[in-house]
Amino acid sequence: MAHAVPLPIPCPVQLGTIKNDSLEAQLHEYVKQGNYVKVKKILKKGKS
C-alpha cells in the first residue's frame, strides 16, 4: 500500500512506492530520497 511522504515544498501529488525491481522503481525511490545524482544517471541510461 502506498503512503504519503512529507515534502518540504508544495507538491500537487502524493508520492507512494513502487514495489517491483525496475528502473522506474529505482528512479521513483531516488527522487523521494532527493538523490538527484542517481536520478540523472538513470535518466541518461534511458536516453541512450
Results as ranks from 00 to 15, higher is better:
Glu24Lys: 00
Lys44Pro: 00
Lys38Pro: 01
Lys40Leu: 14
Lys40Cys: 13
His3Trp: 14
Ala2Thr: 13
Lys38Trp: 03
Met1Ile: 02
Val39Leu: 08
Asn20Glu: 15
Val39Asp: 05
Lys47Tyr: 14
Leu43Ser: 07
Asp21Ile: 01
Pro12Ile: 09
Tyr30Ile: 02
Pro12Met: 01
Gln33Asp: 05
Pro6Ser: 03
Leu7Ala: 08
Cys11Glu: 12
Ile18Glu: 06
Lys47Asn: 11
Glu29Met: 02
Gln14Lys: 14
Tyr30His: 08
Cys11Asn: 07
Lys45Trp: 10
His3Asp: 14
Ala4Gln: 15
Val39Phe: 13
Asn20Arg: 08
Pro10Tyr: 03
Gly16His: 06
Gly16Tyr: 06
Tyr30Asp: 05
Tyr36Ile: 10
Gln33Leu: 15
Ala4Trp: 09
Leu43Trp: 04
Pro8Ile: 01
Met1Asp: 12
Lys19Tyr: 15
Lys47Ile: 14
Lys44Gly: 06
Val5Asn: 06
Lys32Thr: 13
Pro10Ala: 06
Ala4Val: 12
Gln33Trp: 01
Ile42Val: 11
Thr17Val: 13
Ser22Phe: 10
Lys19Phe: 15
His3Cys: 03
Val13Asn: 03
Gly16Arg: 04
Pro12Phe: 05
Ile42Gln: 03
Asn35Gln: 05
Lys45Gly: 01
Ala2Lys: 15
Ile9Glu: 04
Gly34Leu: 01
His28Trp: 06
Gln14Ile: 04
His3Gly: 08
His28Glu: 04
Asn20Gln: 14
Pro12Tyr: 00
Val31Phe: 04
Val5Leu: 12
Gly34Glu: 02
Val13Gly: 01
Lys40Gly: 06
Leu43Gln: 13
Ala4Leu: 14
Ser22His: 09
Val31Ser: 00
Val37Ile: 12
His28Ala: 04
Tyr30Thr: 07
Leu7Val: 10
Gln33Gly: 00
Gly16Ile: 09
Pro8Arg: 07
Val5Ala: 03
His28Cys: 08
Ala25Arg: 00
Lys47Trp: 06
Lys41Glu: 15
Thr17Leu: 12
Gln14Ala: 15
Thr17Met: 14
Ile18Ser: 05
Leu27Arg: 03
Pro8Val: 02
Leu7Asp: 00
Met1Arg: 10
Gly16Phe: 12
Gly16Pro: 14
His28Arg: 00
Gln14Cys: 13
Glu29Trp: 06
Leu15Ile: 05
Pro10Phe: 03
Gly46Glu: 11
Gly16Val: 05
Pro6Cys: 07
Pro12His: 00
Val37Thr: 13
Glu29Tyr: 02
Val31Tyr: 07
Asn35Asp: 13
Val31Pro: 00
Gly46Asn: 09
Pro6Glu: 15
Gly34Thr: 09
Ile42Gly: 07
Leu23Ile: 10
Cys11Asp: 00
Ala2Glu: 15
Glu29Ile: 03
Lys45Ser: 13
Pro6Met: 11
Leu15Gly: 04
Val13Ala: 07
Leu43Glu: 11
Asn20Thr: 14
Leu27Gly: 00
Ala2Asp: 12
Leu43Arg: 10
Asn35His: 03
Leu15Gln: 02
Glu24Tyr: 09
Ile18His: 04
Lys44Phe: 10
Lys45Thr: 15
Ile42His: 10
Pro8Asp: 09
Lys19Ile: 08
Gln33Cys: 03
